[in-house]
């Protein structure tokens, strides 16, 4: 599906190191990502699977440009708004839903004026109704997530990165957000989804990257990669076989 197109983001042997305290006045480097290589193509939905601690969240931060790789290379197309679909990033608790929507919009690069014009749609989509004028600290967790999702969805970045988001809110909103996501995904939007839920990945993605111990272990079609991934999970032997990076296009 992605063949022949230009990559919008390209990672080559990307590694990210964290500095960890190692005694008095000493720091040690810990590599959260060792060696990750793959391309993200325009209009595709790319899944990222991997166990907890494999480096998925760090990878999303690298893709968004929040952190830069310590080794390797990442190139992304210019003038491309890449956003992590982070729910409720930077909500100011005593402010109302409406006020927070405008603040959040700013982080997606949306001007307050534009945000105000979209407010009715956001209120409608989130289903919060009169709660939009209530302080966010009176919201339930699900309601906050609804607001966050509604803002992110309407901010409409060029590339959306999603961290396990499709489990937002109650059944009704979950269906709504999933439908909305699906619409985005089918509307030629570039999406990267990180999940350890194999079903989500199988259902939504065009291609899948499997991250294991900070390295891209396998890139390919969903059925193939997820199959291998699950095989390894179910086989109790968690032997470290990282390093055999396979590029499948």
């Amino acid at each position: 599906m992605a063949a022949g197109r230009q990559p919008v983001i390209s990672l080559q042997n990307v590694g990210v190191a964290y500095k960890v305290k190692a005694g008095f006045l000493r720091r040690r480097r810990v590599w959260a990502l060792q060696d990750v290589s793959f391309d993200v193509y325009e209009g595709e939905t790319l899944g990222v699977v991997g166990r907890n601690g494999a480096g998925k969240s760090t990878l999303l931060q690298v893709l968004t440009g929040i952190i830069l790789p310590d080794r390797g290379l990442i190139t992304s197309r210019k003038d491309c708004r890449i956003s992590l679909l982070s729910l409720q990033a930077g909500f100011v608790q005593p402010l109302t839903g409406r006020e927070n929507a405008i603040l959040s919009g700013l982080f997606f690069g949306i001007r307050p004026g534009t945000m105000k014009d979209m407010m009715d749609k956001i209120a409608d989509f989130s289903g919060l109704g009169a709660y939009m004028d209530q302080p966010v600290n009176t919201y339930s967790t699900g309601m906050r997530a609804r607001l966050g999702f509604a803002v992110a969805f309407h901010a409409d970045p060029d590339i959306i990165l999603i961290d396990e988001v499709l489990g937002v809110g109650d059944q009704e909103f979950k269906e709504k957000s999933e439908a909305a996501m699906r619409q985005k995904i089918s509307s030629n939007k570039t999406v990267v989804i990180v999940s350890h839920n194999a079903n989500t990945i199988l259902e939504l993605c065009d291609r899948v990257v499997w991250i294991e111990n900070g390295a891209s272990k396998m890139v390919g079609l969903p059925a193939e990669v997820v199959g291998k991934y699950q095989e390894q999970i179910y086989s109790k032997r968690m032997k470290n076989t990282a390093g055999q990076v396979r590029q499948v296009k």
Binding site: P94, L95, E99, L103, L106, R111, P112, P135
Partner: peptide
């Protein structure tokens, strides 16, 4: 211009939040 807006709106938000807290 957007960075200016961020400063303005974040500062306003903090002041508003302070007012509503106590």
């Amino acid at each position: 211009i957007l960075q200016y807006e961020i400063i303005k709106y974040r500062a306003l938000a903090e002041l508003r939040a302070e007012v509503r807290r106590g």
